[in-house]
């Protein structure tokens, strides 16, 4: 359980950020395109209810529900995740500080465990492991890091009626990135909406996972991923991420982004 909760802490924050990447220009270098995705305007703050629905290869379905608060603090972003269901996870909270990529600082993360009545600091160096045991890894849900890979523009493709930029990404030495566990990615970006719509992950030449946006909605003027699926081609099974009751720029108080909120929860 302890591991499960720690995993949960690391992963959920990033989940909301993955679909939030933004791009605005056409015919630009892939690095610039992805930087725009990374720095996309998601408003000053956002509140969401999220559901992680994991279907395992044997058909077992596990669902987790949480409330999430996000807020910009200059180039820094902070988020609080609070699990509300199921009962064995409810009350667990995660606090995450994400820093500007140029600063070179790793994220800071804390996990509140109701069984201990204490917050625990979490190391964020390695994000290869699964988040909450789902098909998302910690790396999948963190704020996009453009410098992790080298990129190659592979033109555009039509998917579901949208023109997407296809970008091939690989590590400088061809080996897996020790932090993310991936050596190669194929990224499909909707430049107009500034979102990654599909992401194929490879390790040692093997296609291991596929991320795909399956639901998108404009909420308060911001394109918001309301549903995404991560399919695991190695283990089998998939995880659906649903975002509900999303509101932007509601003036979430700065004081909520501390360990106090982890203990007392989000209403």
């Amino acid at each position: 359980m302890k591991l499960l909760l720690k995993s949960a802490a690391l992963t959920l924050l990033s989940l909301t950020m993955l679909p939030a990447f933004a791009v605005s220009e056409k015919s630009i270098k892939p690095e610039v395109l992805l930087e725009q995705v990374r720095d996309r305007d998601d408003g000053d703050d956002r509140r969401s209810r999220m559901i992680l629905e994991q279907t395992m290869s044997d058909g077992f379905v596990r669902e987790r529900e949480l409330l999430m608060l996000e807020k910009k603090f200059g180039a820094e972003r902070k988020a609080v995740l609070y699990f509300t269901a199921p009962a064995d996870t409810a009350g667990t909270g995660i606090l995450m500080f994400s820093y500007e990529e140029a600063s070179g600082k790793d994220d800071d993360q804390w996990l509140y465990l109701p069984a201990l009545r204490q917050s625990r600091r979490i190391a964020t160096n390695s994000k290869e492991g699964p988040f909450l045991g789902t098909d998302f890894s910690f790396a999948d849900i963190e704020r996009l890091r453009v410098d992790d890979y080298l990129y190659e523009d592979q033109g555009t493709v039509e998917i579901n009626g949208r023109t997407l930029h296809k970008i091939a990404a690989h590590t400088a030495n061809g080996l897996e990135n020790p932090r993310t566990g991936y050596s190669q990615r194929e990224i499909f970006v909707d430049a107009e909406r500034q979102l990654i719509m599909r992401d194929e992950f490879y390790r040692e030449g093997r296609h291991i996972k596929t991320f795909e946006v399956t639901g998108l909605k404009e909420i308060d003027g911001y394109w918001t991923v309301t549903e995404a699926v991560m399919t695991n081609h190695v283990e089998g099974g998939f995880t659906r991420l649903l975002r509900k009751e999303t509101t932007y720029n509601v003036g979430i108080a700065e004081r909520l982004f501390n360990e106090r909120t982890l203990r007392s929860g989000i209403q």
Partner: peptide, 9 residues
């Protein structure tokens, strides 16, 4: 010292 990696704690 604590370490969490690949579902090992």
């Amino acid at each position: 010292f604590d370490r969490v990696e690949n579902e090992w704690t």
